[in-house]
Design a protein around this nucleic acid. Structure first.
Lengths: 145, 145
DNA sequence: TACAATTAGATTGTGCACAATTTAATATAG
DNA sequence: CTATATTAAATTGTGCACAATCTAATTGTA
């Protein structure tokens, strides 16, 4: 079969386009705070559980250290986090929120919450989508190994 | 409210993670052909409708010329497409598949189709997801203006 | 105790993706 | 006919995201 669906009928493109659009919406809401969307995801992980290693943050966000290290350095330079070597095991770098980083939570979360309020997604729809997307992600990850 | 859901309960992260995982699955399948996932999306657009301007491709893929021009140059250097200035209106660059570019369709499409076969998504689920993701994309785009 | 294997993070190189600006071409107004 | 406005694409700068490799530290084994 050489006939294929047009791109807008393919799930891969729907995901690609939607992900870009969500990232743009977040970027617009977060720009006034001087942080990017991926940086917001790191901060979110730390607001949920402070003082974690690069590896732990990487596991939650599904990002490797090649991506995380430069981002964490920028967050540190901007004063949102502090990085430090773990004394018992100096291979490990731990990341901790500064006061400024903790203080950002309320305003940033409110700001991005507006994105979802304006979308007016039904709570059931939200959860079904969430579950289905995580399901696809997990299955693809299984296929890697 | 300062309590927030953990990231894995937020739709923005489900989209982010799923999109990355789908991109990775496509990258693995496409690497043997020497093309990247975003390049595949451009080729897909052209397989569906050859000979289009950069603007037209940009509209379908929701990408601007700053992203498209370097990618199209790489696709041209690799022999998949030809770019040419439109004689009636020399502001416009038209992109056309080469024989090699056309010939890639069957193998590339089969290769990536395997991703979805292995996922075993119900056809209804696929369509519901597609529709919902496009709906979110459109609403976010409306919010921009 | 010494050495090999493994682990954690950092670095390097590359390909996007976006925003802002520039360049070149066309359309429009006076 | 000329000047201005608009359009299409290209360029520049920046921030990811990934793969591969390197560096430093820790663990395991003989």
């Amino acid at each position: 079969m050489t006939e294929t669906l047009p791109l807008n009928q393919q799930l891969c493109f729907a995901l690609y386009a939607c992900s870009k659009e969500v990232a743009k919406a977040y970027r617009d809401k977060l720009a006034p705070f001087g942080i990017t969307y991926p940086q917001y995801l790191i901060l979110s992980a730390l607001w949920d559980q402070d003082y974690r290693s690069v590896t732990e943050i990487g596991q939650e966000l599904q990002l490797d250290s090649g991506t995380l290290t430069p981002m964490l350095k920028r967050l540190e330079e901007a004063g949102w986090v502090i990085r430090s070597r773990h004394k018992p095991d100096e291979r490990r770098v731990y990341v901790e929120l500064t006061d400024k980083g903790s203080a950002l939570k309320y305003d940033a979360v409110c700001s991005v919450a507006a994105i979802w309020s304006e979308l007016n997604l039904n709570e059931d729809t939200y959860h079904v989508l969430l579950t289905q997307l995580h399901g696809i992600t997990k299955q693809l990850q299984k296929g890697d190994k």
